[in-house]
């Protein structure tokens, strides 16, 4: 349904997107995961025909977005990062306008607008001015606008950004519902989001694809060495030494010490599950086991791991200007380390 082949986008000497290729099948939800400035928005803008690619090809439902833009655009629904609303229009007027410029016949417009408002649960806001809506509603009107003309492909740029937790859950549910008849590409920088909504994930960093896989496979791959967080009511050198002595433990770092309670990060060797051994040791040492859990992998950890795994020879030169991630502090930090 969507085919991206060797797409590159350069702004002068800056390479925002560097030789990206992937495919999305009909009915699939593809997650685009990456830090800010990784090239997610640029890739989406190329797919929607907003930006032309410097090199490479992108097809939507078989139509090249550059050669046959009208055909491709007719089949695409797009929610940009900021919902493109006209503050002076009411929600219903706005959606009717979008229906009209999408070439919908006059008879269908009213019903389709009604359907889209129903699906995004904004029917009660129909007569409100877009400029007066809350962030959550703006986002939903943006989504209604994207699904309005029943496009084959939905491209959603950070659809849950700025929503409250309840709205996030509702939006995810809606996206999952939509996936049946639409192909969905959504971008996010929130890790749990992809594992909950998407069937496949493209991880992108500095304009390059780092990994394409199902969320489960990715998690499995990333669990090669596991980091555990352990909290016990003991601290000091003795506790540290005892923990290090546990079979299968590679390293122990003390991350937190207060009121006689110690928090430790424990790295295990590849493939070893040390949780049983650890808890036994803690108990036999006479300490209280307060907490033991796998540490949540943050996005940065994943990048760190994937980038070193995929390209072990590619050294990161400190001070080198790397395009595409000016806005991303975490990646910068890592470069400095």
């Amino acid at each position: 349904m969507v085919e991206v082949q060797h797409v590159t986008k350069r702004y002068g000497s800056l390479t925002a997107v560097d030789d990206i290729s992937f495919r999305v099948e009909r009915g699939e939800i593809l997650g685009f995961l990456g830090p800010n400035g990784a090239g997610k928005t640029t890739t989406m803008r190329i797919l929607t025909g907003f930006l032309p690619a410097t090199e490479g090809q992108a097809r939507i439902a078989g139509f090249d977005v550059f050669e046959q833009p009208m055909e491709a655009k007719r089949r695409t629904g797009y929610l940009p990062e900021t919902p493109p609303l006209y503050p002076e229009m009411t929600v219903a007027e706005y959606l009717r306008f979008v229906a009209r410029i999408n070439g919908m016949p006059p008879g269908d417009r009213r019903t389709q607008v009604g359907v889209a408002m129903e699906r995004t649960k904004i029917s009660d806001m129909a007569d409100r001015y877009c400029g007066k809506l809350s962030k959550g509603y703006r986002q939903r009107v943006g989504l209604a606008q994207a699904i309005l003309h029943n496009p084959d492909v939905l491209i959603l740029d950070e659809p849950t950004a700025g929503l409250d937790p309840r709205q996030i859950i509702e939006t995810r549910r809606l996206i999952a519902e939509l996936a049946g008849d639409h192909t969905v590409i959504l971008s996010t920088h929130i890790l749990p989001e992809v594992s909950q909504t998407c069937q496949r994930v493209v991880i992108i960093n500095r304009g390059r694809v780092v990994a394409i896989d199902t969320p489960d496979n990715l998690t499995a791959r990333l669990q090669g060495s596991q980091t555990l967080y352990l909290q016990i009511d003991a601290q000091g050198a003795e506790a540290l030494a005892t923990l290090e002595g546990v079979d299968g433990v590679a390293s122990v770092t003390c991350v937190d010490e207060h009121d006689g309670i110690g928090g430790y990060e424990i790295e295990s060797r590849q493939g070893d599950d040390v949780r049983r051994e650890l808890s036994r040791t803690v108990v036999t040492s006479g300490w209280g086991l307060l907490e033991l859990r796998p540490r949540q992998m943050s996005l940065e950890d994943i990048f760190l791991q994937l980038t070193t795994e995929e390209a072990p020879t590619e050294a990161v030169h400190p001070g080198m200007v790397t395009p595409g991630d000016e806005a991303d502090v975490t990646v910068e930090d890592r470069v400095d380390e």
Binding site: F50, K73, G103
Partner: peptide
């Protein structure tokens, strides 16, 4: 909103 216009047919 220019993005809406330029990505519409």
């Amino acid at each position: 909103t220019i993005e809406l216009l330029l990505t519409s047919p």
